[in-house]
Design a protein around this nucleic acid. Structure first.
Lengths: 207, 207
DNA sequence: TTAAAAATCACCCGAAAGGGTAAATGAAAG
DNA sequence: CTTTCATTTACCCTTTCGGGTGATTTTTAA
């Protein structure tokens, strides 16, 4: 049911198998277990998993962080660092890659599971914080002349890339009316085009 | 130097003066001290402060939360709740108004100061998480055919509401070249206009 | 060195959008 | 009851944009 595949990058086979077992018992699919950087990169390229668990310390080097950077730049999947509590120095370097979560050694199966669940959830939610829905009340906080509800309807359609003709069809009004409303919007927003209206909204909210 | 004005809404004069003194010693301006809901609303209307400190419990009622809701809907300023640790029931109601921070009674001057500084900082940063800057690497993660760096330059200008003519002037190229690049962008983004390209980017990143 | 890819510019055409004025309707508020 | 105000539509005209083809130059990679 779950069908979520996870790549394990861990140089200690015992720990790797420990994680793999725990994952399988919780309905995850272990897409692969690899022991070094090269194999990890090959696996990402040829068989991209839904998530990755990276031991920071691989064979005495901080290769885990390098892999994280590559994932962050090239793939859109969450990754968790596997680290020990004492390892505070490297943690600072790990943080900047913005991992979806951490698994702290020694870990329990319940702890591992909840770490992954939280990480997956956070990663899924993360992008939704960006590009928020438009809210009339928020927009009007920044405008001297408030946008009416009807105008806001039009604005939302503009925001979603509709043409004037599409807006007219969507709202069952003539294209002339659409133009009129949009013209009023432009006056209030100090805009001159669909795209500049969108940019203006962003600019207003970010101030 | 600071020049940040803060409204205090607190029904106990001793506590209010306590806060006011601490604020002034840390270079804040106390815009007013009010003891009830009505005076708070009047103050917001006539002399909007840069931030507000709201005691949740005013004269035995939860008027602080009502004031918070009004601020959240009508003004673009951060507010902090003044509450006691034991007051866990009302805290649930307070949370939904998304305050910039909390000040827990009894408080120290250092604690008050850091609470406010953190709250102001968070509030200032908050909107910047919304509508993030476009990143070529992020966009290309979602596209079958990657956008070139030059095309990305054009895309950023579209994103900021520029017309083709403005883009041409900005990049010192002819409007014909602008059109050519944008046409290629449309093919890659599956878009048909400036605004639909912007919407498509948002849609891609939010998936 | 040569081939492929990216960037540049031109021209044409039809569709879409922007700017302005004028006016009818209907609902809400005084 | 009248006076706003939002919504609706029409018509005009100009500018801009989208779509297509073709060609030159520059850069990159093989």
């Amino acid at each position: 049911m779950n069908e979520i595949s996870i790549l394990i990058v861990e140089d200690e086979p015992i720990v790797a198998e420990d994680i793999a077992g725990a994952l399988r018992r919780n309905d995850y699919i272990v897409s692969a277990i690899v022991y070094n950087r090269e194999d990890a990169l090959a696996e990402l390229k040829n068989n991209l998993p839904d998530a990755a668990i990276l031991d920071i310390n691989l064979n005495g080097k901080m290769e885990g962080i390098e892999i994280a950077e590559i994932i962050a730049c090239n793939y859109h999947i969450p990754f968790l660092f596997l680290t020990s509590y004492s390892d505070k120095k490297t943690l600072a370097n790990a943080k900047v890659t913005e991992p979806a979560g951490y698994i702290v050694k020694p870990f329990t199966e319940a702890g591992l599971y909840s770490s992954i669940e939280i990480a997956l959830h956070n990663f899924a939610q993360k992008s939704k914080h960006n590009f928020p829905e438009l809210k009339l009340s928020t927009i009007n906080k920044f405008l001297p002349s408030p946008v009416s509800e009807r105008e806001f309807q039009l604005l939302q359609l503009i925001y979603n890339g509709c043409t004037n003709k599409q807006i007219a069809a969507e709202l069952f009004i003539s294209i002339n009316t659409v133009k009129k409303h949009i013209n009023n919007l432009y006056l209030k927003l100090d805009a001159t085009s669909h795209s500049s209206a969108i940019a203006r909204i962003r600019q207003l909210i970010l101030q």
